[in-house]
């Protein structure tokens, strides 16, 4: 694809035009769709809560019973399984929402507005950014619901925090969620613009979610994994996100499932940096796919 009037950098707006906010239009339209489908809206908000309520409580009652006899090292803050996995559920929900966030692009390409958008003066990077921001918004809403609901049913998030610490904790979590969501939304957009059928897209997405979710520390510690799996899990963006969430929601130093978790600020900064690198790479991938895309 030849130049569409896009400058060579991420900074937006075609030359000679004041089209700086094209992504806001894309965002606005995607949010209209989000609130329009009531069943989809409610189920997307309810689903993470249900995970927490059923899977979380069921597993927690088992694990907590098993761990009951084990001695907790003195002076370390110990948390139950529900608290441990609630962070994983936030991450899981963000992963699913983000990976499927690009689907609208495929639908637009086959049956909707994609040609209308591509033929407009709005730059292609704005399409990517608009869709990504609406995906991030959805993930924020879901993350906040899970946090609220989790605390309600007994997850010890922000336990003993002062109000200011809680605000910082929530902001920290949202920052991690945002970066992670952006990365997977860009990936999703890149796949969606390159594929022909929704079925194919569904297949690819399902294939991706499995290893990303299970090769992570969402539901269990990764320390006792076989070496290869452990290394994979360590560099999994999912693990980086969950580290961040646990750091901000539970604290830098806690004990869960017989493991001692201690995060230095450096660890968290590295996780954050890892997510930055991840989403930048995914943006470049998406941008490349969009520039090449020909929809007629």
């Amino acid at each position: 694809m030849k130049d569409r009037g896009l400058p060579a950098r991420i900074s937006c707006g075609p030359e000679g035009s004041n089209m700086q906010y094209g992504f806001v239009t894309i965002y606005w339209r995607d949010m209209i769709r989000f609130v329009r489908f009531k069943t989809l809206l409610i189920s997307s908000l309810l689903q993470p809560a249900l995970w927490l309520a059923f899977f979380g409580i069921a597993m927690a009652s088992n694990f907590d019973a098993m761990m009951a006899g084990m001695p907790v090292p003195a002076g370390i803050h110990s948390v139950g399984y529900l608290t441990f996995m609630a962070a994983g559920i936030i991450a899981m929900t963000t992963l699913f929402t983000s990976l499927f966030g690009g689907i609208v692009i495929l639908f637009d390409k086959n049956w909707g507005l994609m040609r209308e958008i591509l033929a407009s003066p709005v730059g292609r990077n704005h399409i990517i950014v608009g869709i990504a921001l609406s995906g991030v918004t959805k993930s924020f809403i879901q993350a906040l619901i899970i946090m609220g609901f989790g605390v309600l049913i007994g997850a010890a998030f922000f336990a003993g925090y002062a109000p200011l610490q809680i605000v910082i904790g929530i902001l920290g979590i949202l920052a991690f969620v945002a970066l992670f969501a952006l990365g997977f939304l860009f990936l999703s957009a890149a796949i969606a613009i390159s594929m022909e059928s929704p079925e194919g897209l569904q297949g690819v997405m399902t294939l991706l979610t499995m290893p990303i979710f299970f090769a992570s520390n969402a539901l269990y510690p990764i320390d006792s994994f076989p070496e290869i799996l452990r290394v994979i899990s360590l560099y999994n963006p999912m693990t980086m996100l969950i580290n961040g969430i646990r750091y901000f929601a539970i604290g830098p130093d806690f004990y869960a499932l017989g493991h001692h978790y201690a995060f230095t600020q450096m660890d968290i900064a590295l996780s954050f940096l890892g997510l930055v690198v991840f989403s930048v790479i995914m943006f470049v991938l998406a941008w490349w796919r969009f520039r090449k895309a020909v929809v007629t």
Partner: peptide
Amino acid sequence: EFHGRLYD
């Protein structure tokens, strides 16, 4: 409205 916005 969407179109009008797209074309700024």
